[in-house]
Design a protein around this nucleic acid. Structure first.
Lengths: 110, 110
DNA sequence: CGATTATATATAATATTCCTATACATAAGG
DNA sequence: CCTTATGTATAGGAATATTATATATAATCG
């Protein structure tokens, strides 16, 4: 797993990315991030929930309570229009960071 | 410039990277990072100095007071053996983070 | 000749974002 | 019955960046 100090700031991008393909609830968001990154990126739920609340406050996502097939209540989040618009510049900024670190020879060019 | 939330955690890698090619003092480290990344990555000196003290405490760098040609006192830092050994795994971890974000389609594959 | 910019280091107060620990509640499997 | 999985939620703390401030000197510009 990638150390906490290094992955700092990635949660926002990760959440927006996994929500792009459809609505998910918090617990499932955590699993998707872990699975899709093959375990490299992993967030505790204690980190994820406050992040989701912040993002909802910013109007990038919107949560709705629903009931699962077995009767569990859970909060399902979907990207808002503002959230979709936020993704592109966020990705650009991350790409720029990677380019900057490559220029410092901080990471490989592969 | 890349926003603070995103670049969080890069300072350590950036400092080690610019020190790899030779000893530098704090003020110059800040300039090198900014110049080499074409302004993408920029740290305030108030962030850099405590970072240098931490890294010296960890024995990754060692500082020595010297006097510049015009008589200014400044603290010159160079990588220690431990600091050089730290760079490789740190770079691997950052590469792994980039790969993880690409798998989430959070950034371009370019 | 005075003001600003550049050089150089240092600390205090604050913000953000992650962590561990804890709490609650239910279902499924061994 | 006990553990693991499913779900959401908050408290307390750690790490790393920010702005603001302080000190001190040299160079440059109007």
């Amino acid at each position: 797993m990638i150390a906490s100090g290094i992955k700092r700031g990635t949660a926002e991008l990760a959440v927006l990315s996994v929500l792009e393909s459809g609505a998910l609830h918090g617990y499932e968001i955590a699993r998707r991030i872990e699975r899709q990154t093959k375990g490299s990126l992993r967030f505790t739920l204690a980190a994820l929930y406050p992040m989701l609340y912040r993002m909802e406050k910013h109007r990038w996502i919107r949560g709705e309570w629903e009931t699962s097939p077995i009767g569990r209540r859970r909060r399902c989040y979907r990207l808002t229009h503002a959230g979709k618009k936020k993704l592109a510049p966020l990705r650009r900024e991350w790409s720029e960071l990677f380019a900057a670190l490559r220029r410092l020879e901080g990471v490989s060019n592969a």
